[in-house]
Design a protein around this nucleic acid. Structure first.
Lengths: 108, 108
DNA sequence: AGAATTGTTCGTATATTTGCGAACAAAAGA
DNA sequence: TCTTTTGTTCGCAAATATACGAACAATTCT
């Protein structure tokens, strides 16, 4: 049944990458990475989009595991998910670090 | 007019990330990164999808600058675009390498 | 209780993505 | 010339993604 078309690694990196595949979400990640505290409102202020949209982007980043949020009534505090951040860091580093084909004339 | 909503860096990384945001495209990139030669047919054989779809994914990777292709009639040879690969490597490394908020109790 | 604050969720509209088969294009070979 | 090989492009369908305002929920403040 559940035919696996791609490796876990491919699926996983694609998931991280996809979450990072929108400038608004990159902006959110950059903002969170350098902030100690990070309420929804702070993030919303940074971005030129409606709060409903911000909330949606945050949800996607959370689902992808890159961030986490916790209610601190009446606010919501968002932060980088350190564990997965480290995992992503390592995966991207390994990916781009792999030795490429050495042959120079390979592709013009 | 052309109000810039996000920084160039954010736009650029998002572009790379978006291209990497599909397992088939990750599979293609992994395959190309370890191959010296890489014709369309070789890539197609690796993947469980129709050639039209493969062609489309290749086009997206090319548009994002991560790969390049050149006609070698009657075949087409695809390769990693080393220059942009290096750029992406550096961008992702810098991004994930940035120091995170140190405060431990910050978010549970 | 009523009002204000802070975000999420809902409903909707539009745009983009993904995937496929069929048609097409270009060159080589019979 | 006709056929084969190798990929791209076209046209279409279905699924996702993006964005917004309005409605809603939970708590605090008056």
């Amino acid at each position: 049944m559940t035919e696996r078309k791609y490796t876990d690694e491919q699926e996983r990196m694609a998931r991280f990458a996809k979450a990072m595949g929108h400038p608004a979400r990159m902006a959110i990640l950059q903002f969170l990475a350098k902030q100690e505290c990070c309420f929804f409102g702070d993030i919303h202020e940074e971005l030129p989009i409606a709060k409903a949209t911000v909330s949606q982007h945050l949800k996607e980043l959370k689902d992808a595991g890159l961030i986490q949020g916790e209610i601190e009534t009446p606010k919501v505090r968002y932060c980088i998910n350190r564990e997965n951040w480290e995992l992503a860091r390592r995966m991207f580093a390994d990916f781009f670090g792999q030795p490429l084909c050495k042959k120079d004339g390979c592709c013009g």
